[in-house]
Design a binder for these strands. Sequence first.
DNA 1: ACCTAAACCTGGGCGC
DNA 2: TGCGCCCAGGTTTAGG
Length: 274
Amino acid sequence: MPELPEVQTIVLYLASHLVGKKISSVEILKPKSFVGKKEEIIGTVIKKVERRAKLIVISLSNNKTLLIHLKMSGQLIYESRITNNELNKNKYKRVVINFTDKSQLIFNDLRIFGWIKVINSLKVQGFNGLKLGPEPFSKEFTVEYLQKVFSKTRRPIKLVLMDQEKIAGIGNIYANEILFDAGIRPDKPAQQLNNLTIKQLRNSILKILKKAIKYKGSSAADEQYIQANGEKGSYQKHFLVYQRDGEKCKRCGGEVKRTKLGGRGTFWCPKCQK
DNA sequence: ACCTAAACCTGGGCGC
DNA sequence: TGCGCCCAGGTTTAGG
């Protein structure tokens, strides 16, 4: 589901609405969706809401942290008041966190891949041996770093872009869009990229992610992603290749192709991407 | 270290 | 209407 721009959009909204709120109760409608004891977070106050890779990190006042992964179909919706006309809106409700001021955070998840976990705040970094690469917007994300990573593997560049241990936050939509922007074939072995191309690729990564955040993420075709305020994102209107197979390339007029890489749908223009 | 497929789930769309 | 298949923004695990 959500990749860096979508999670970032959700986190910014939640940070401005949840900080300072006190948790009064937690409703767990799907046990699989909540890992830990809800008693450990009841009565605590929300201190911080941040993003790391595609994870949402909510720090609480008692040294516990809520770690949330939305996976493919998770949604986090903030309701400032309890509403009764939820007919279809929160159809796949799995967990509800209620606050003392009657507002609530609702976790919807059609496919039940996502989760909310209660962990000790100190463990966030190396959570479950989770190895995450640098954030694209951090100062560690340099051309030199990418040269080092790419030089060590012949894997298709698209798979390396999506490898969370190498770079944090890029998923299938943005990997496709970034490679089109950079003019690189998705199946090009990472090792074969020259220094100039790597520099261009880094620029494309920052450019596309920045633009996607500006448009508040992508609510694509059969989208599950919506913002925490219930509205759709609009970056899907700016897709140049993703889900455009069979259509005309907006740059050269040729046909956008669809192939498979690592089991994932891969969209690209053979004329523009070498 | 690399690769692939399958698994975790539900639902929509398509061909027959 | 229905069946079977493929598809879906992600990660983890098992096996080669």
